[in-house]
Design a protein around this nucleic acid. Structure first.
Lengths: 341, 341
DNA sequence: AGTTACAATGAAAGCGCTTTCATTTCTTCG
DNA sequence: CGAAGAAATGAAAGCGCTTTCATTGTAACT
């Protein structure tokens, strides 16, 4: 029978405790603690002896105990909607890389675009006493906000822009993205305009920015899609079919992501549309395949990894007590004009 | 100045401790503990009073303290190579969903396909005393294995198959995948065969299975790609260009992932290749775009999410003390024949 | 040699919970 | 109505560390 005995002598991380190491090395526990955390404070000779014992016994410190005593867990939590949609994956990678190199660990929560789940996650996460927390977006339930501010830890909100973040925000204005795309399409001028994509808060903001910029100039068509965020290749393809079936004049389409745009592109390509003359498609995200589609996809480029990196740096600075971290850290975006618009 | 005071009265999760709740509710700390963890053991009247105080104070239990005392952290760690390559993202989502619904939390580590990093991560993770750990793949440094077995906790290795897992494995044989693909291509029969893709351990196994099955029948061409795992759309496109430039007869290509295959497909399509007559492409993963490419991509389907779900279930059973968990849990795969092979 | 300063170590308390084990309070039934 | 058993609660110890604060050892200077 498999044995995961948690009793006196066989425990997680080995049976060894800091006290054991101390005894074996002939020093007091404090000295071992110092040897591990602030080796500069212990005499080289003693240090060496302790390290030898640690290596020999395979001792792995218990960070639960350490965190409890020191009130520092070296844990940073991040809540993102999903990890399966490429959009956040790179942010997480950036975040993680930066945190790991600073000796922190990432505790990931997946909210599935659900504010209720975000609240539950926040509670569960706070119970682990992270040194900081990163949230996606700026809209949270009031209970979440209350819990967060009550916890008085560094908070970074990512992937959106706001004049009044909970603490600090790293992101950009999605409405501005929508406006920019509208203007890009307006330069050439199309008979019809459409937007297709997800209905998460940020995609909606991009859509609204797009629609508003076009207000008084053109009605924006919004094909019905029975879907939740994030949208897929398939959604894009279906939506484009719908739009093209309606017929009538040249068409400029803004897709909520490159994946959706790619699907739209596939449909357009299959029908032999003339791009970008009669049909323009603009995506969002500049995914790795964007330059290689046929024709290459015009899209909005935003450095997703950089969001993670900057968020990590901000939170680390806050933890270090640096009060000079800006409330809003802006991330650049711009249109990469390729073959589809 | 922002104030993340960790002093006596303003701490993470609020200043409140279990002892405070006890005092306010007029009971002893144990009773509060029971009210939270085993409410059935406390009288409804008392329970209600305690819950009221908890709600009023916004008390968030300290799981560090709880974990230290109970030796159960309700934390499951998972180490995956990356989260940016779609391949593992869905496994993580499956894992997470299952764990969350059982009251556990996922601690994610990203190894970047680097065994050394995996070792470091393992150490860091074990220091948090998770109740179980999930690793990607079956090849680990011997130090990692030693540390893991020494920690005596449930272990699940995912995404590969082996007769001798560290504890339990959930996955499939990549060599078998390679063989299956070879056989699929052999039925139609091509003049040339090639494999293009990543060089991570599992992609290599798939390649080897493919090559071995073709041994004595055909030499398998392996275009040079200056890249690391995971490969991209771009890699696929370049590799296909290389292969096509060499000219000479019909060609059957096995790509290490659908993303690579998609790139290869784009190049083939651009050149107006006749598929699957003169050119066959088989991907791996059955990503969401696969049915929608042009022509639709033939690929190997494997339920990535299911790997996560099954891994979670296995580890939860192990934690619950169930010794009957199989050592090897096989995951199905099969070829989805669409338009490219 | 005698102070002073600093470097190196240690003793004790405590972080916020859970775990026994003991005690009290309630039921139930002869 | 009182004994016996069950239900509800509590007291005390301890999980494995870090944090003061105190002590000792070692240089450095006059």
């Amino acid at each position: 029978m498999t044995d995961y005995d948690k009793s006196k002598h066989i425990r997680n991380g080995g049976p060894v405790t800091l006290a054991d190491i101390a005894k074996l090395a002939g020093v007091s526990p404090v000295t071992v603690s110092r040897a591990i955390n602030t080796p500069a404070l212990v005499k080289p000779h003693t240090l060496e002896a302790i390290e030898k014992v640690i290596a020999r016994t395979g001792y792995v410190p218990n960070l639960l105990a350490g965190g409890l005593a020191s009130r520092r867990t070296r844990l940073i939590a991040a809540i993102v909607p999903s990890v399966a949609s490429t959009i956040f994956a790179e942010t997480i990678e950036g975040l993680n890389a930066e945190l790991v190199s600073a000796g922190y660990q990432l505790l990931l929560g997946l909210s599935g675009y659900d504010p209720g789940r975000e609240l539950e996650l926040t509670r569960a996460i706070l119970a682990r006493r992270p040194d900081g927390i990163i949230l996606t977006g700026i809209t949270h339930m009031k209970e979440t906000r209350a819990m967060l501010t009550g916890a008085s830890l560094p908070i970074v909100e990512i992937w959106d822009s706001t004049p009044s973040p909970l603490d600090t925000a790293v992101g950009f204005s999605h409405a501005a993205v929508g406006r920019l795309v509208a203007e890009h399409l307006l330069i050439r001028g199309y008979d019809r305009y459409a937007q297709v994509g997800a209905n998460d808060p940020r995609a909606v903001q991009r859509r609204d920015g797009f629609v508003n910029r076009l207000k008084g100039i053109a009605e924006v068509e919004l094909p019905e899609l029975d879907m939740n965020s994030p949208s897929t290749f398939r959604d894009g393809r279906m939506a484009m079919a719908q739009l093209l079936d309606r017929g009538g004049g040249s068409l400029g389409v803004f897709c909520s992501s490159d994946v959706v745009a790619h699907g739209a592109l596939a449909e357009a390509h299959a029908r032999g549309c003339n791009m970008p003359g009669d049909l323009a498609i603009i995506g969002f995200g500049d995914f790795d395949f964007a330059p290689h589609t046929h024709p290459p996809l015009t899209t909005v480029r935003i450095d997703r990894r950089d969001i993670g990196t900057k968020a990590a740096r901000s939170i680390l600075r806050k933890i270090a007590g640096d009060a000079s971290v800006e409330a809003m850290i802006d991330i650049d975006f711009h249109i990469v004009a390729r073959g589809t618009a």
